[in-house]
Amino acid sequence: MGRIVLENVTKSFGSTEVIPPLNLTIEDGEFAVFVGPSGCGKSTLLRVIAGLEDATSGKVLIDDEDVTEISPSKRGLAMVFQTYALYPHMSVRKNIAFPMRMAGMSEEEQEKRITAAANSLNLTDYLDRKPGQLSGGQRQRVAIGRAIVRDPSAFLFDEPLSNLDAALRVGMRLEITEMHERMKTTMIYVTHDQVEAMTMANKIVVLQAGVIEQVGSPLELYHRPRNKFVAGFIGSPKMNLIEGALAEEQAAHTIGIRPEHLSISDKEGLWQGTVGVAEHLGSDTFIHIHGIEGCDPMTMRAAGDVSFNHGDRVYLTPDATQIHKFDAQGLRVE
């Protein structure tokens, strides 16, 4: 079980309030991702849940039990850190055994769990090595192994993939998602990378300056962003946000259109502009178009290989059903 509820949690460092009163429920078995730009308080929030930081006020409940005043080790949570935080003087085996050893578990039970964790994480051949002799991906797997053997009610991940290279990151992303599917344990995952959030989460919590901007499933956030911030943060490349005359035509302060919902033509269309840089990814082409009022440059995404040259005059047409409208406060208008 691992249902985590935050009730009016706040956190201040001295006189600066990092997290204003915040309410959030993470259901048992959910994969929740806290995402936001750096400095938005997502890591602090995770540390408050873990107990490494005390909440300034408010309550943290795990399975309806108030754990606000309970020490971190008694909360039954396991955490995986960005820097792995492995114990450098111990072998992989001893690292994984450490929490069980601290809990005074019997040797046989320890050995059984180490073997199981090592098998599921492909660490069997490395059990007697020191962390210093492992690659980044292997170290992160050891850190996950150390978390698994505790059989926690929830896993907390604090930007666990940030120190890995791009290829490994994709691999580990899949492994962690796969692990969640198998174990069905609550996981809370902090990242600044919206791709990780979109691909892994059941529930995304978008944070900005300690405030929750929106909570929802990845596709909910993609299709119905509650405000301009979420609209711009979720999706890659970013949504084009257009202000001014073009928005007023649609009776909105700002309109947003995702690059994949624009079509391009050299003959006719709604908006006229000139081609700037075109980024060819093979499967897609991202074209930056200048000269459209209220949004410069506007990005559009064309499937496959499209050949437009720098300076070409082109026309863009938005898919009318996919236009997002926002009012002067930046909130979504239906």
Binding site: A50, G51, L52, P72, S73, L77, A78, M79, F81, Q82, T83, A85, L86, Y87, P88, F98, P99, M102, A103, A143, R146, R150
Partner: peptide
């Protein structure tokens, strides 16, 4: 962070 990990490990 190692110390924090150890705190969480009990």
């Amino acid at each position: 962070q190692q110390k924090e990990a150890a705190i969480l490990d009990g």
